[in-house]
Simulated assay, not measured.
Amino acid sequence: METYSTAKQKIEKEILRLQRQMKTLKVKQRRPIITSIVRSMQDNEITIEELTQALESTKKRGAKGVSQSKSVLPPKYRNPATGDTWTGRGRPPRWILDADAAGKERDSFLIK
């Protein structure tokens, strides 16, 4: 009968074998793509420097070509008791929900 330790060792060996197999498959899949890129670069006389510059500019812009920085919205509501604020977007904070439940108008918390 197999012990826990030997069963675990067999499984770990199988995992390592499968990971090596996956790595080999990735290399085989990428090889024709890289060949195609190199051929296109040669056909269009694109230099490594141009490619590097293009990659850097896409990193700065982000994946979709738009700025990645999110602008911070100014608060729209303020709790006069604690000074807590809320922009009016997303899930309302507890103090707004409590005020709604108490029958207070949300507009009474508007920052003017």
Results as ranks from 00 to 15, higher is better:
P92D: 08
E56R: 10
L25A: 14
D43R: 11
D100A: 12
Q19C: 07
N79G: 05
A54D: 08
V72M: 07
Q9E: 15
T47L: 10
M41K: 10
S67G: 04
P74T: 08
K28W: 01
I34P: 01
Q9F: 04
P74I: 03
I15G: 05
M22P: 00
G83V: 05
T87K: 01
T85A: 10
V66H: 12
G90A: 09
K13M: 08
S5I: 14
T35M: 13
W95G: 04
A101H: 03
K64M: 09
L55Q: 11
L18P: 00
E49K: 14
S40A: 15
K8P: 00
M41C: 15
K70P: 00
V38W: 01
T3G: 13
K64G: 03
D107G: 10
L16R: 14
E56W: 02
E49H: 10
V27F: 06
D100C: 10
R78T: 07
R31A: 10
T58R: 15
A99C: 02
Q42P: 00
G103R: 07
A81R: 11
L73W: 01
T47R: 10
I37D: 02
K26M: 13
R39M: 09
L18D: 05
G65N: 06
I37P: 01
S36T: 11
K60C: 03
S5R: 14
K64T: 06
D84W: 01
E56P: 00
S40F: 13
K76H: 02
T35H: 09
I37F: 07
L97D: 02
A7E: 08
Y4C: 07
T6S: 15
V27A: 15
I11A: 15
D43H: 03
D107I: 05
G103A: 09
S40D: 11
R30C: 03
I34D: 04
G88D: 03
A63D: 03
P74E: 11
R31H: 04
Q42S: 07
T85P: 02
A102I: 01
R61K: 14
K26N: 09
K70R: 11
R30S: 08
T47Y: 05
R30I: 04
E56C: 07
D43I: 05
G83L: 13
V72R: 08
E50K: 13
D43P: 00
K26V: 13
I111A: 10
S69M: 12
T87M: 02
P75D: 08
G90E: 04
S40I: 12
G103H: 03
R94V: 07
I46W: 03
A63E: 04
N44C: 10
R106L: 12
L25Q: 12
S5G: 04
R20G: 04
K23D: 09
R89W: 04
E50L: 07
N79Y: 03
K26H: 08
D43K: 11
E49V: 09
E14K: 14
F109Y: 15
K104M: 05
A54Q: 09
E50C: 03
T24E: 13
T35C: 09
L55G: 11
S108V: 06
D84N: 12
T85N: 09
Y4R: 14
T35R: 15
